[in-house]
Amino acid sequence: MSKIFPKSANRLPLQIIIFLIVLLGVVTTATNYYATPKYTRVGYAPVQPVPYSHALHVDKLGLDCRYCHSNVEKSGVANLPTAQTCMNCHSQVRTDSPLLAPVRAAYQSGEPINWVRIHQVPDYVYFNHSVHVNRGVSCVSCHGQINQMEVVAHAKSLSMGFCLDCHRNPQANVRPLDQVTNLNWNADQVKIDGKPHAEWAAEFVKNNKIKPPQSCTGCHR
């Protein structure tokens, strides 16, 4: 009587187990790589109704972030500017530019411009802008070098790990309050009150009692 299974079948169970382990490793790696805001959100640069360039307005003209996002120090929300804010200058500058037609229309009619939102934490996350900028956390820490962007792109992941990195070690991301909207400020190149940044930041955190919440309810409230 001939054998039903060849001799090599003896190794098959082990080979299947090894394959399943490899498969598990590949699936884990892929999930880890793709199922995170580092992949899903970073790089998001939607086409806006008006091709507003932060590089031009902030870096070249020197406008402060707060000229347009005027409530960021008072409110949890960094507001988009009103059409009138644009028209403060564009009632005189580039008055016939076709690119600015939506702005003029919005100013005339009072209907808002439908800007596409880029940075957005999920609805189950509480985030307050004012408490961050009033404690020396710069715009650049979460939004990247907006001042160099022709088209705004999502630069940082804004994942939970991203938030916690800073909440566990706020010293690394605080700066003097008058430099919060200076996106080119570099902690390594300046001395603050004659001290290197690390030393200054440790005192700043202590003196201002900066204790970022690390408990779940700090943000998931």
Partner: peptide, 13 residues
């Protein structure tokens, strides 16, 4: 790959 620029709405995990 991660970090490439795109204009479509982000995927939801």
């Amino acid at each position: 790959f991660r970090g490439s620029t795109f204009t479509r709405p982000p995927m939801m995990v």
